[in-house]
């Protein structure tokens, strides 16, 4: 079986892939990067919080012009996962305004980014339409 590694450390792989945030124990604010303190209340203790894997698209753009090496067009979005906002691409959907809508229901999906020289496969995530 191929070894895998998540594209970012807040993506938890396994049978039920999901995102995991650092949740401030004092105020409940959630963050995806490593923390020194809470940006909301300056609390310093955090617990892991699993983010719901379904949500709705609160904002999107279809990027048609990007740095060399980035395939365009692609859909960048903010997905509201039951109150926690997540930045992600929308995947498994045609990147055009006829197929992507504000408010559309989506769910987390993973995909292979590619294998490194050791054969380890990086796994990325995006959100795909719930059909």
């Amino acid at each position: 079986m191929t070894a895998t590694i998540p594209l970012v450390d807040y993506l938890v792989l396994g049978d039920q892939p999901h995102l995991e945030a650092h949740e401030c124990e004092a105020c409940g604010a959630r963050f995806f990067d490593r923390r020194n303190a809470c940006a909301h209340c300056s609390g310093t203790t955090f617990r892991p919080a699993a983010i719901p894997t379904e949500g709705e698209v609160r904002a999107f753009t279809i990027v048609a012009f990007a740095a060399p090496g980035i395939d365009v067009p692609y859909v960048a979005a903010v997905v509201d996962c039951a109150g926690t906002s997540v930045r992600a691409n929308l995947i498994n959907v045609a990147p055009d305004p006829e197929h992507v809508h504000l408010g559309m229901k989506v769910r987390l999906a993973t995909y292979p980014v590619g294998a490194d020289s050791d054969g380890t496969e990086a796994i990325g995530f995006g959100f795909e339409p719930i059909s």
């Binding site: 970012v8 990027v63 990007a66 960048a76 990086a122 990325g124």
Partner: peptide
Amino acid sequence: YGAVAPVDGRIGTEI
């Protein structure tokens, strides 16, 4: 974020 590769274009956009 413990990223193993650049994320622009993979996790949203920076432009």
